Amino acid sequence: MTRIPNSHSGLDPLSKQDYQLWLAEPDGSVRSAGLLQVAPDGEVRPLLAADIGNTEGIAVTVEPEGGSAQPTSDPMMQMPLTG
């Protein structure tokens, strides 16, 4: 499991919400890369992206349980991908 740091260890488990990973495309659109699975201790199971194509960045949002077709909240984390 991969640990994503914050003010304590891992991510806070959510109730009736999920953390969702997004891939940012060159045209400004985003597509879902799936939901992050968070253990009770905050550890996050890794996600494998099969095809990242021309992805320019990634972001994580908090979404309603089961995820969303498009982000419904501001990213809690975002980062560009280079190289």
Rank of each mutant, 00 (worst) to 15 (best):
A24K: 08
A24P: 01
A24D: 11
E25T: 07
E25I: 05
E25P: 01
P26K: 08
P26R: 06
P26G: 01
D27N: 15
G28P: 01
G28Y: 07
G28C: 05
G28T: 08
S29I: 01
S29P: 01
V30I: 05
V30C: 07
V30W: 08
V30L: 14
R31G: 06
R31S: 13
R31H: 15
S32I: 01
A33L: 07
A33D: 08
G34K: 01
L35P: 05
L35K: 00
L35Y: 06
L35W: 04
L36S: 03
L36E: 06
Q37S: 12
Q37F: 09
V38K: 03
V38L: 06
V38Q: 06
A39F: 10
A39R: 02
A39L: 10
P40D: 15
D41M: 08
D41G: 12
E43T: 14
V44H: 15
V44P: 07
R45H: 15
L47N: 10
L48W: 02
L48I: 07
A49K: 02
A49G: 05
D51T: 11
D51K: 15
I52P: 13
I52Q: 10
I52M: 14
I52Y: 13
I52R: 14
G53K: 05
G53F: 07
G53H: 01
N54G: 03
N54L: 14
N54I: 10
T55M: 07
T55F: 03
E56V: 14
G57N: 10
G57Y: 03
G57Q: 09
G57M: 15
A59I: 01
A59V: 01
A59K: 01
A59Q: 04
V60G: 04
V60Y: 05
V60M: 11
T61D: 11
V62S: 08
V62L: 14
V62N: 10
V62R: 06
E63G: 00
E63P: 09
E63H: 07
E63K: 06
E63Y: 00
P64S: 13
P64Y: 11
E65H: 15
G66Q: 05
G66M: 05
G67A: 02
G67Y: 00
S68H: 00
S68W: 10
A69M: 03
A69I: 06
Q70I: 09
Q70H: 03
Q70K: 09
Q70A: 09
P71Y: 12
P71V: 08
T72M: 08
T72C: 04
S73Q: 10
S73F: 10
S73P: 00
S73K: 02
D74I: 12
